[in-house]
Design a binder for these strands. Sequence first.
RNA 1: GCCUGGGUGGCGGAAUAGGUAGACGCAAGGGACUUAAAAUCCCUUGGGGCGCGUCCCCGUGCGGGUUCGAUUCCCGCCCCAGGCACCA
Length: 884
Amino acid sequence: MPFAVLCGTREHFSNARRAGMNEHYEPKAIEARWQKYWEENRLFTAREDPSREKYYLLEMFPYPSGKIHMGHVRNYTIGDVVARYKTMRGFNVLHPMGWDAFGMPAENAAIANNSHPARWTYDNIDYMRDQLKSMGFSYDWERELATCRPEYYRWEQWLFLKMYEKGMVYRKKSDVNWCDACQTVLANEQVEAGLCWRCGTEVRLKKLEQWFFRISDYADDLLEYSDRLLPGWPEKVVTMQKNWIGKSVGARILFPVENRDITIEVFTTRQDTVYGATFMVLAPEHPLVPELARGTGREAEAARFVERMAKQDKARRMAEDFEKEGLFLGAYCTNPMSGRRMPVYTANFALMEYGTGAVMSVPTHDQRDFEFAKKYGLDLVVVIQPPGESLDPATMTEAYTDDGVLVNSGPFDGMGNRDAMEAIADKLEAEGLGGRSVQYRLRDWGISRQRYWGTPIPMVHCPDCGVVPVREEDLPVVLPEDADLLPGGKSPLPVLEDWLKVPCPSCGREDARRETDTMDTFVESSWYFERYCSPRYDQGMFDQKAVDYWMPVDQYIGGVEHAILHLLYSRYFTRVLHDLGMVKFKEPFTRLLTQGMVCKETTKCPEHGFLFPDEVQVKGEDRVCARCGAPVVVGRMEKMSKSKKNVVDPGNLLKEYGADIVRLFCLFASPPERDLEWSEAGVEGAARFLNRVWRMVAKHREDVSGAKPYDGPADELSGAARDLFRKVHDTIRRVTTDIEDRFHFNTAVSAVMELVNEIYGSGGVENEEHGREVLAKALQTVVLLLAPIVPHLSEELWEVLGNEPSVAKAPWPQWREDALATSTVLVVVQVNGKLRSRLNVAADADQESVKQMALADPQVRKFVGDKPVKKVICVPGKLVNVVV
RNA sequence: GCCUGGGUGGCGGAAUAGGUAGACGCAAGGGACUUAAAAUCCCUUGGGGCGCGUCCCCGUGCGGGUUCGAUUCCCGCCCCAGGCACCA
């Protein structure tokens, strides 16, 4: 027995210390050391190399809000494991990081601190960069970018001009969603239930001249690819995008107005019910409303109604219990199919933004129309009969919206309604009464923002020439960084005369003025992944060769909150670049992982409201408010948020535990796509495990020094060495498949924990034939498998075990099939499906003998008794089920 | 209302070709080491029952079904989370 084992752990430690291994695991020293090593050796600098297979791993870049939060830590830890794993698997990995640096919080903070958005932003970037570096993420920092720098946004302006040239951008006066608090316009996507997505203020409509991107031109393409070409995306996200695009296939139908030379056009998805249309409803904003009311004696009433509806705020109008209200305009139109005379109403449930703003109402087969008809006593005509039933308008309590057979529909009677849809669409087209039509919920992307801290829109307003694009050679239009914000957070751009006044690019007139709107910050984040491929390139948006090599992103990782906005815009932008001939692909992100939220229970004091974790004191079993001593109400697990104060600051965690422990906890506590519940005890557990790994290496270091990790055939081993060798390879297999197939790092970590437990329990293995080599293999494997997860500790132990740095560039271990084989297998025996016994049988035993062994087993016989055996089911190497 | 997920011990979570439910960790309990504590190491731990066993019964939200066998597949419900919502 080696000297060290006889003498116990104390001797081990002194040996270890003599050779330079610290007795205790000290994360801080180790982490600083290896972060420096990585940086000095430019270990994660990515270079194009066509001879190697590339892997582009991207995490959603952060907004530089001040300091990183747990959501960042989790997101970037997941990404880092994949990046490091892929590197070890031999891929040429691109793993960049940067800053989504424009946006309103910078302006708000500047006002609050009497500072400047630029100052605030750059300071935050510096601080957060340090934080990310101290997490040990394997970013190629040489590619870092910040979207608020002119070198970045000049290419965004350049693209804007290209799009303008191609008619992909336009300007129009329109009702926009206006947030008074933010003093700006919001895209439809940024309005949540009638409230501003950022500050929760009620959004109101305002008429403004706005710039729009024609994203709706791509609605069908975006939709089609959602189904066919995004298999690497979570179904949930694809579904959300599909719903958002909201394609409806139907028909346009023209309804002539009685005694007037006016036609009302409607869009419907149920042209099969056209014979049942008994009245017409127009949106209150519909231009025909005042016109139709004219001369009917109802003008004043109609005007009052429209005004009142306009004041109904959007939030209430969308509420479920909202009362349907309408007004008869005094006019009639004619149903072109049935010839029926239909009264024309205006009503609050018709939306001007969708379809044509007019609805043919079929109260028998549409629930909204049904409710409206009941309220105003309008006619009901059944035109679809359900199979085996006969609806009677007099007794109907709700609309029938399912399939059936047409009645009261002239030549279409007796036809199935699905067929009737086509037949009626044909007839409409043939007779010029309308035709097939497709509508989308998705509307064009309004990108104008009346804010300062954003990319200036490169346009000029000339009194003579109108709106004129800035000349390409005059880019970038630099945002003046010395401007001070106006009271109320208003943009200073419209009053900055020096900046504002510019000669007209077209006629040269001196008093032209710049566009003062800036772009929605979602524009910057719609192409940053392409810019990362060649971030310093100054001849265009990106270097073609670099983009051809790196793009598309192989794996994108971020929060599900961007499922619609950012991801849809990015897909749209990539199509624009594609159609401009700049990229060869349409989808930017091949695979997408949306990680769950980081949650923690809330704590609330009856007096002081929500409490931060450090405002809660533990008194025995109870928790009390640190300020007033009142018992704390512990709420349910919720997403960490400043407003609920249930937050944990990664900065403090880093100080207390170091990066590896925090990383390990984030990965081990739950699989990435699910929510992560914060647990202090869990972090302690992670710390304990890493200490255990450290001590394991310290303990066995002497045993394995000079021993070459065993890589020979399994059958030259026996006893404990053979068992350990099997466990090593089984662990390699499990960890590899867990990471490779489904990013289940939690089970990967469990597997390594099992291996570590086994090594602890394998005392004496070093005395076996090849025992020291197998032990060396086991220790080395633990370190290699942990390398992507806890990189600093792994680097340190890799070196301690006598290897040259860096483990980050070491090849990922391979498992040997022959090592996994066992001489005997455990076969479970069931009687009628219930577990009754277990048998250890030779791995190569034939089925018949296993069956006989099972039937002979005393436990089995007890349950079989003298009942006749009907059937015996054998699953080789696993199970025997005796059916009696 | 519609569309996604999800419901498994005291807790986080395992079990992805239908085949030993509860891996791994946390918490709890017991033991070893220590003058003592911390740390560490080892053991126990779904519920119930008794003859304490290689024992029996129950058990993966609820109710049915398919199957030799169901956490896994099918049908019908309940609950939780997220998304969409008067979109014609």
